[in-house]
Each structure stands twice: as structure tokens, then as C-alpha cells.
Amino acid sequence: MPTGAPPRPRRRRPHGKPALFGALFVVPAALYVAIFQLGPVLYGLVLSFTRYSPLSRSGPEFVGLDNYRSLYGDPEFGRAMLITGRYVLQVLPITVVIALGLALLSNRAFRGVGLFRTAMYVPHVVSLTAVSMIWLWIYSDDGVINQILDLLGMAGQRWLSTEDAALNAASAMRVWKALGSNMVLLLAGLQTVPKDLYEAARVDGANAWQQFRAVTLPGLRPMLTYVIAMDIIYLAQGFTEIFVLTQGGPYGSTTTVNFLIYTEAFQYNQMGSASAMAFVLFAFIAGLSIVAIRVGQGRRL
């Protein structure tokens, strides 16, 4: 590498006053999260070992590992895991790469740049209830996409009702929806890349691509890690877009794990098995995220 990467934070032994204040600074957030987020999660963990309908008067009934055991042999759940995995893996790279490109392009003050950025953020803002109706229509037989294909002399498709197309159609909508927030995060991340490193790189005669590889990317690493981890966490819980576009169909080809969980919890009133599914999904998300974070920190797995 022609230039020095930004200094990586040195590892510091936790000791002395800074550490004490670190703990103090964390206390308010930790208390709140422990009570209002971790609490309900632990409650859910307990429920995952029970059979429980919120409607019942008798309360949860302990069934040990039964819920997990029946998930293990359940082809429907296995398939939903695969679909969720595919969904994450096909949406994530596309979103991040496009968002990074857009962030680089709009990382500059010029007249109207604020409007560009705001426009990109619009999909993230507008509630899905209304947007989904528009997308259902875009994907319909006589919808915009088929009309455009028709103009180009190509045959239209059944975007939401064939097994091959439906998950991809949902993915496209999700990319669209997530683009703005990813871009904005990366844009902010770009600000932490010290300017003088670019100067140094330039002096060393690095071209744009080399500067990107040697300065931008390493400097962006913490934020890029966050963006990827966040996308994994949210994508793996993909639900709303599926709920409004395909209801999990056709043939269950868009039934993600979180769609199953919602159905199990609120259609079938089986909180126990819904919770068990949630914790299997959790393990999956945690696994993927840890890989992403470790890679992001530049460590070996």
C-alpha cells in the first residue's frame, strides 16, 4: 500500500478511571435496554420452552425442548430458513454497493444535493401500507414493469405469482426501501475519513481507485460494518414487505421465518413455538452478524 491506513484504535487494557467512566456512561442505556428490551426477550426465551396461547386462562405449560425438537424436523421451517438466508444474501450486497456509490456521489456540497439525498430517503419514510398498494400495482399483470417490457418488445411476467419471480420481486422492493438509509449512514461515515490521508495519498501518486482502496475503504470500515450488520439484522427479520406483497406465497416460496413467526404467534396463537422459532432465527442472525463484524474489524474468523 502506497499510503498509511488510518491508525487502528489501539487495544487498551480496561483499567483505571477511563474504564470507570466508561461503565458509568453505559449505565443509563444499559438499564433501560435491560428492562424494556432484554426483559421481554428473556420472557420470550422462557416461553419458547412452553406451550402457550395468550388467550388461555391457564398460562404457559412447560414442555421442555419440544418446540425446538419439532422445528428440527419441520420441512416448512427449514425451507423458511433457507428462504430467509437467500433473501439476506441477495438483498444485502446490492443495497450496500449501490448505497456506497450514491454516498460517494453525493458527498459533496453543491446546489440541490440536499434534495437528492432527501429523495433517496423518501422510500425509507413513507409507510408501507400505502406504498405496498403502489408496488402491488407496479408488479401486476398490467403494471408498469410489464408495460415497459412490452414497449421494449419483451414478454411480460407474473412477478408476484410465480415461484421464481416472487422472492426477487420482494427483494427489489426491499433494496429500493433500504437504499436511502444505507446511503445516509455511509455518507456520515465518509466524514470520519481524515482529509489529510487523501493529501498524503495524492502526494504518493495514488490514483482514484488506489485512494479509494487505501484511504476511503479502511476509514469507512466501522460504518460499513454497522451498515452490513444492521442490514443483516433487519433483512433476516423481513416481514412487512412479504406480508403486503405475497402473503408468503406462491407455494410458500416467500415465506420467511419472521412471516412464519407472526402467523404462529397471532394467527395460530401459539406463542411457545413462535418464540422457539424466534430464537433459532436469532442464532442465525447472530452468527451472520458476528462474521460480518469480525470481517469488518479486519480480523480472522
Binding site: 402491488l136 400495482w137 401486476s140 399483470d141 398490467d142 407474473r158 408476484l160 405469482s161 410465480t162 405475497t246 402473503q247 406465497g249 406462491p250
Partner: peptide, 18 residues
Amino acid sequence: TLGVAWAGSPEAQQPIAT
């Protein structure tokens, strides 16, 4: 219309109306 969930569309977009 096998597999097409037209019943959830606005009436004006359903096959009988179009």
C-alpha cells in the same frame, strides 16, 4: 389468472372490471 391474487386489488383493477 392462476396464482394471481387479484381479489386484493382495487375493484377497478380486477379482471371483471378491466
